[in-house]
């Protein structure tokens, strides 16, 4: 790779945008197909073979629609919000190591970078909800803020727990530490820290909540808030929010893969590469879809209770126990 750095970055950015867009489109297809299978029906079949062109048709439909700014809405914030929800998702993907070499920026504080940009997502949804001048959207915006604040804490606590084991914030190094057979993955490294599976489960739950996915989809709880913060968005404004939701799922699942499931490492110690990363990530994405179509939605106060009364204390205890364990060994 002898390209000059700016060109390499630009190429990576373009590739990333294409990846995110295509990924979002086909995750929607996968979600609809998956939902269909869970519900004993075939899902999309009409457009293209097995409905494979359905996302394209949907995209064309969304793009060709007028973006309506409701009267009384804040016109600037209303338009900025979809961009602001999309941008951080792409930014975070720049530091995720897809394989040993396929990484946009291999920086030392990759993990901090991911969480710093991940937090912007909340602000963007709040902005969209507030700017819409719609009561459902405002309720949704308020919910998103308290939900994401509540779940950021246990998520960061378990990540700190993990960092104490890895000793580095460079995502590529974290993956390299997990080389070899699959019991070297952080998830199974019970010799270093027997609480690893607990931290993984907490991380996964928090990831579901942070990305506003069912059963924690308080932001667009359609039986209560119609479409929540996105109620007033039409056309591609809504489309971008929709894409961002899937981009965030990919980011969350990528992070879980990198931190706990050995990233691009092969489970058998040989033949590591990008394929393993994608396999693991999409397995997690499938789990996310599976959960959505299986469980009903929680109430908002149970959701906050789960975080403040269960997840935060458990992750605190995990943190303390890990400290003690690491000190003893």
């Amino acid at each position: 790779m002898d390209f000059p750095e700016p060109i390499r970055l630009l190429a990576f950015l373009l590739g990333m945008m294409a990846f995110v867009a295509v990924n979002a489109a086909y995750l929607v297809w996968a979600e609809r197909k998956g939902a269909g299978r869970f519900q004993r029906r075939p899902g999309p079949t009409e457009v293209g073979w097995a409905g494979l062109l359905q996302p394209v048709a949907d995209g064309i439909k969304l793009i060709s629609k007028q973006v309506i700014v409701p009267p009384g809405a804040d016109p600037i914030l209303f338009r900025v919000a979809p961009l602001l929800v999309m941008a951080p998702a792409m930014m975070t993907l720049a530091v995720i190591p897809f394989s040993e070499t396929l990484v946009g920026r291999d920086i030392n504080v990759g993990l901090v970078f991911v969480f710093a940009f991940g937090a912007i997502n909340v602000m963007a949804i709040m902005m969209g909800g507030w700017a819409s001048r719609n009561k459902y959207a405002i309720i949704s915006a308020a919910r998103v803020v308290s939900q994401d604040v509540a779940y950021e804490i246990p998520m960061l606590l378990v990540v700190i727990t993990l960092l104490m084991v890895t000793g580095t914030m460079n995502l590529n190094e974290i993956v390299q530490q997990q080389a070899g057979w699959f019991w070297h993955w952080n998830l199974f490294r019970l010799d270093v820290n027997p609480l690893m599976p607990v931290t993984f489960i907490i991380f996964f739950i928090c990831m579901l909540a942070e990305t506003n996915r069912a059963p924690f989809d308080m932001a667009e709880a359609e039986s209560e808030l119609v479409a929540g913060a996105f109620t007033e968005y039409a056309g591609m404004g809504f489309g971008v929010f929709f894409m961002a939701e899937y981009a965030n799922i990919v980011v969350g699942c990528s992070l879980a893969t990198v931190l706990f499931l050995g990233g691009w490492q092969s489970p058998f110690g040989v033949g590591s590469g990008v394929i393993w990363f994608l396999l693991k990530m999409y397995a997690l994405v499938f789990t996310v879809i599976w959960v959505r179509w299986t469980f009903p939605r929680t109430q908002f106060y149970s959701l906050l209770n789960l975080s403040w009364k269960i997840l935060i204390p458990i992750s605190m205890v995990t943190l303390v126990l890990t400290c003690i364990l690491l000190k003893l060994t």
């Binding site: 869970f38 069912a214 059963p215 709880a221 039986s223 009903p296 939605r297």
Partner: peptide
């Protein structure tokens, strides 16, 4: 009712 509670899948089974 399950749809009201955010569970989509039972509806299709019930309609079946």
């Amino acid at each position: 009712f399950l749809l009201d509670l955010g569970g989509f899948t039972p509806l299709l089974y019930a309609f079946d």
